[in-house]
Nucleic acid binder design. Structure first.
Length: 218
DNA sequence: ACCCAGGTGGCCC
DNA sequence: GGGCCACATGGG
C-alpha cells in the first residue's frame, strides 16, 4: 500500500482539515499551549482549558508566565493531567524567557534541527509535541507521528514498528517534503483514528477498508 | 461500570 | 532500545 495513495483516499473522504485550529490573534502561541494540553487528551477538553485562558487574556507569553502555578492548574483543569501540564507549560515559558527573551517568533525562526533539539530539551515536550510545534507553529516540513499513525500503519500492513523516528522517516521518505501536505495528512490520520481506525475498529465503513490487511472489526 | 482521548517522563531491565 | 506505570478530566 503506497503511502501517498493513503493520503489521497483520506483527503477525498474527509476533505480539507485546515489544522491547527486556533481562535485568537496569537495563533502560534495558542498552538504551543494546545500542543502541550492535548497530550493524551481529547481536543474537546483542551478547548475548555484554552477558553479559560483566553477569557483572562492569558494567551500571551508574558501574561501566562506571570501567573501562579496553582492558578494555572485551576484554569487548565478540564484538560486533565492538570498538575503535570501546568508544570510543562511553565517549563516551556521559563525556557522561552531565559533563552529568547519571551519572543516565540524568535524561537520558531531557528533552523529546524536546532528548534527540535531545543524543544526536546524542555521537560514535558516529547517528539510528537515538538514536531507539532515545528509543523504547525513554525510551519516547517516535519511529519508528526501519533498513536493513530502507529495503529494505521500496523493495520494497513505498512509497518509494525512502534519506534517514532522509524515511522517518521518512513513517511518523510515516501512523501514530497511539503509542509501543507504534512499538515493535512497528520490531521487526516487523526480524523481516521477518531472515526474508523479506533482501538475498536469500524472497518466496514472505513475509507481504507479495501486497502487494509487487517480488517478486525465490523 | 467500563473504555478511551491529537503523550511524556521516570524507573527498570 | 523496550515495557510498565502515574498522571486526570469528560464523553461515549
Amino acid at each position: 500500500m503506497n503511502i501517498f495513495q493513503v493520503y489521497q483516499i483520506l483527503s477525498n473522504h474527509f476533505g480539507k482539515q485546515e489544522w491547527w485550529p486556533t481562535t485568537t490573534t496569537n495563533p502560534k502561541f495558542e498552538i504551543v499551549i494546545g500542543a502541550i494540553l492535548t497530550q493524551q487528551t481529547s481536543w474537546r477538553n483542551v478547548e475548555k482549558a484554552i477558553r479559560n485562558l483566553k477569557s483572562r487574556g492569558l494567551l500571551l507569553a508574558r501574561r501566562l508566565s506571570s501567573i501562579e502555578l496553582s492558578e494555572l492548574e485551576t484554569l487548565i483543569k478540564p484538560s486533565g493531567f492538570y498538575k503535570v501540564k501546568a508544570r510543562r507549560l511553565k517549563n516551556f515559558l521559563r525556557f522561552l524567557f531565559i533563552n529568547y527573551d519571551g519572543d516565540l517568533e524568535k524561537l520558531l525562526r531557528q533552523p529546524t534541527r536546532r528548534l527540535r533539539q531545543e524543544l526536546l530539551s524542555i521537560n514535558g515536550i516529547g517528539k510528537e509535541t515538538a514536531d507539532s510545534i515545528i509543523l504547525y507553529a513554525a510551519e516547517k516540513p516535519i511529519f508528526v507521528v501519533d498513536a493513530y499513525t502507529f495503529r494505521m500503519c500496523e493495520r494497513l500492513g505498512i509497518t509494525d514498528s512502534k519506534n517514532y523516528d522509524t515511522v517518521q522517516k518512513l513517511f518523510q521518505d515516501e512523501l514530497p517534503k511539503d509542509k501543507n501536505l504534512f499538515k493535512e495528512f497528520h490531521a487526516l490520520i487523526v480524523e481516521l483514528g477518531k472515526n474508523y481506525c479506533k482501538k475498536k475498529p469500524k472497518c466496514e465503513e472505513c475509507p481504507l477498508n479495501s486497502e487494509c490487511e487487517k480488517r478486525l472489526g465490523p
